[in-house]
Design a protein around this nucleic acid. Sequence first.
RNA 1: GCAGAAAUGGUGGAAUGGUAGACACGGGGGACUUAAAAUCCCCUGGCCCUUACCGGCUGUGUGGGUUCGAGUCCCACUUUCUGUACCA
Length: 923
Amino acid sequence: MEYNHKEIESRWQNYWRENDIYRTRTDSSKKKFYVLDMFPYPSGAGLHVGHPLGYIASDIYSRFKRQQGFNVLHPMGYDAYGLPAEQYAIQTGQHPEKTTNENIARYRNQLDKIGFSFDWSREVRTCDPEYYKWTQWAFMQMFNHYYDRDADKALPIERLEESFAKHGSEGINAACGKDLSFTAGEWNSWDERKRREILMNYRIAYQGESMVNWCPALGTVLANDEVSEGVSVRGGHPVEQRVMNQWCLRVSAYAPRLLADLEDLEWSDSLKETQRNWIGRSEGAEMRFPVKDSDIQLEIFTTRADTIFGVTFMVLAPESEYVGLLTTPEQSEAVKAYLEEVKHKTERERQIDKRVSGVFTGSYAINPLTGKEIPIWISDYVLAGYGTGAIMAVPAHDSRDYAFARHFNLPVIPLIEGADVSEESFDAKEGIMMNSEGPELNLNGLTVKEAIAKTKQFIEEKGLGKVKTNYRLRDAIFSRQRYWGEPFPVYYKDGIPYLMDEKQLPLLLPEVDSYLPTSDGQPPLGRAKNWVTPEGYPIELCTMPGFAGSSAYYLRYMDPHNHDALVSKEADEYWQDVDLYVGGAEHATGHLIYSRFWNKFLYDLGKVVKKEPFRKLVNQGMIQGRSSFVYRIKDTNTFVSHGLKNNYEVAPIRVDISMVSNDILDCDAFRRWRPDFADAEFILEEDGKYHCGYAVEKMSKSMFNVVNPDDIVERYGADTLRLYEMFLGPIEQSKPWDTNGIDGVNRFLRKLVALFSKADLEAKDTPMSKEEKKVVHKLIKKITQDIQNFSFNTSVAAFMIAVNDLTALKSTNAEAMRILTTLIAPFAPHLAEEFHHQMGLEGSVVDAPWPEYDEDAIKDDSVKYPVSFNGKARFTIEVPAATAPAEVEAIALADPAAAKWLDGKEVKKVIVVPGKIVNVVVK
RNA sequence: GCAGAAAUGGUGGAAUGGUAGACACGGGGGACUUAAAAUCCCCUGGCCCUUACCGGCUGUGUGGGUUCGAGUCCCACUUUCUGUACCA
């Protein structure tokens, strides 16, 4: 049999499609298993070989689970809303829906060629109204709920209203944007507008003034995870801080649960740690410092309550509400100038420019423990969004305070014995306290840890402050001033936002004549005609951000065609959660936080049964590109091979990797590549070949290093691509794509075909020989373990060994081939299906039951023991498998070879590890 | 700065504390062939000994430790990658 991959693969792909082999149904008689890939954003560039890495791994796993008898849900869809499509639309005037659909068609075509077992009948697209109806629905639920800290869950906003009507703000412990205090009488006297304003501070989806990342180039606000190092993640445009009225999600209310529930997840340590850092829990104390000659109490947050005797000044964030209150007339000019300066700095400039800057307010606070006056300053190193936007500065033990104190010549008081603060601050939380004695509290002689505890207790008792836990995680900004996203089901009456009726969902994205903002700076939806409710009220002009649609898509797959709910009760109770989620670690602080939050919210509402969406998560590594270089000798058109380039003055030039094979350049193709290389000369190495250099870089068109999976499939077949991607190395590891070596995997498949074509398929009932059985059962054991451990590279190696062994045994046994076919089905499904049918077996190999292995068949009759002397292996003995350790020892010492290594020395001890080793310890 | 992960031949990578380098690429040699491709066989960490056979030494980033025995466990360090940062 010839291995004609094209013919085999297209034939079985058709068979799977025509027979609906991958259709999954809810089947309560079987145990479920849900394997999910992070759905892709369908970019215009199409898939490169890096994208399918995770898909192949998850496909192997889900096929394996299916063969083990599970009812496997393995869906795929598209994260279809996004910025690139919109920017392309702005440039070309084409509707983003059109280009998105074209990209999706291309992706689908590429994915289909690789032979995935996705149930495409469950496909979701975030831009599909039938899908985003439920994104809008979830937003409405969030608008209609608040977070009750006592119940520790989201509750309907009506409960809050009832409570306000009866008791005012008294007795309510809820997540709230402001410190609000009012009586029932006040509440009842307020009109609807005022009440709605109050309620807005409690809603989980709320509209509020907040400091946002504004990106002028993109004309939109961005979430914190969409900004990195002061520039937008998409496009790299500068981002500045602005106060704007925006829709937000009260993710921060869920911070404690998001942190605590990480414990039970089977995620990598590094990913959990990244989330822990992002959530950023810190235990400390909130303290009030009275301001001199004023009723104002300045509230600060600190984790170092122990350093209170070292506070020599206080600092406010420039945006702090105290700034206006504490600036004295004498200082008002200077403060005004400073605020102006800070305001015009972009976030990026603020980060790059680490110079110390600040201004004195003119006011003084009183240290409540020492009674001393301390100046209050303003500086942009204090952030408005964290803690209270004000700090007590302890220059001796905080490097930022230290830099500030040195710059403005403020005193530094060391508090820890032996700490040298003449050059830099001593930030470590360790040591013995000194200089810390006041009229009421003495910390001297205590360790830092003891001092923190004692101070906290003291300030709570004296009512100077309270113990507080802060989280770094901030609420997610949920508005985008863009076109290509989900419209908000919100309209405005007298400027107050109201929800539309649920029956009006989905609220369809309207057509516009251009995807740019309007001339008066409104978002693109401002161009839509009749963008009003039937009653004539204007509808919200912003759309939702990308993470809105990707936060609950895994639930929709469970029940994708349901018109009445995001997911039915039955489907949710059956499928529960994602058993295995495969995707990139770059989503650690975005999607994976939002999705967990979204799921927990729906859990609070009783809409889903699991408090966490993704039980086990595997991060596949990034596949980098491997660029090839040629070396042009300066001022010539002569190119020198990599090994000889040091003899010349050369300039490296990237060449398209399609002209390079195993680092050898196809010189003729190179000459044809570009007109100016047409008469290129080459200096070759001794072997008569031109060797290219290489570098590992991001895979991109501009580096000429993109490898398209279509080309690999065309040349070697999908089964080879699948096996090779797995063979490259551990799935979690980032590695460069290197097509060198794919021949080895392809060769293996051809050997497998050769082995199979010699098999005597007629003699079905012939038992395997002992040797055959051993090879096959060892393989079953190895593959079963490897798949469970996600160790696919070693599985591929095991297949290679088994095929070589069976070939060496000249095996023609049909049973051995049947088992081999079953085992390789998850990896090389096309070839396995071909074998399966050639053997005349019923149905698809997809449902071939996973074989059990027989431990007895694997056991050796005899065991080889390396015999070591003082840990160094010297010779090998072979004894019957059942030999007792004492006897093994005797045989080892009696071996003629032993005498040489004993050399008359005394044997101190002999260690026999059954089945492993004999180690003789001699003096 | 902080956090996490990693470091093994020319390359990608194997190794439940038990003969390091599986498997594959690349390289070398050979068979078949008029020839090439394809295929098959042998060798392939380094150093040394030997005509050859047989051998020996050394070796998993560096330095220490635990152990009969360490690539694997512990401590310190170096380097690389990833994430994150005026978060008080």
